[in-house]
Amino acid sequence: MKPSRFEYFAPESLAEAVALRDAHPGAAVLAGGQSLLPIMNFRLGRPEQVIDLRKASELAFVRVQNDVVEVGAMTRQRDLERDEGAARANPLIAESLRLVAHAVIRNRGTVGGSIAHADPAAELPALLSCLDGSVEVAGVRGRRRISAGELFVFHLTTSLEPNEVITSVSFPALEPSWGWSFLEVTRRHGDFALAGVCAALKLDGDRCVGQVRLAACGIGTTPVRLSTAEEALLSRPLTEKALREAGRAAAGYVTAGDETQASTAYRRQLVEALVRRSLLRAAARLERRTS
């Protein structure tokens, strides 16, 4: 479990990193290394070059402005989890991060790294999908923004060009009129979720669902926005019937096949239960937040 031979670069600026990325399209970008290094140690990936972003300090920041929490790609997950400004602007961020692996992994793991790795079972991609967030990427031809909906293409695959680097991740804020919840089921503390559901919810004056956002991890080849479940809830109170219908609609999104740790049938039931519980928790928090 030693990586094969590779050339190592540690650029000190984004510009330098982008130039290296352009010069070495086969290079791997090392952010926190929590996924890349095991892949290299198992020799499942054998990049000839590794571009380590740890010295590009301009990529580590948390900024809250214009109702957006913008997080530099190299921000450690643990730092974002503990960022008070981010927590005030969007409490769902910290809730999601607490579910990411273990604290020691979050100490190293980065926000940009998790998004770029695009593991469909991971929490941060699901959070970004749920919130309709986006990423900013940089290449030699400049910067561009990619929305969550356009970013996640397939298992471990994003729509980034091979010579692009994620520079920041933008999570829209959640005003106090929103309730929120991220629930998941794992085999053990800190494992990847068998399934997880991220929910944000706003109720009308008559306690009907005004706006709702639902996304799931662990159920398909990308994080999945549960649109039909959202539609099933709009303008309705959170009755048993509405919850059941939303849950069933969500279960329809499960495409993961039978695996040792979770059958497709189990995942469907699990997503149904998690949608229901996540919505109820979001609603309960909303009640506490507004009362």
Binding site: F42, R187, R188, H189, T260
Partner: peptide, 26 residues
């Protein structure tokens, strides 16, 4: 938790502590 997951061809699919689950203190 513990199950060594051989496929029909005799490949051990979970030969790592990421996928062979042992209980943590938690």
């Amino acid at each position: 938790y513990e199950l060594l997951d051989y496929d029909a061809e005799g490949n051990l699919r979970n030969a790592s502590l990421m996928e062979f689950l042992m209980p943590y203190a938690t």
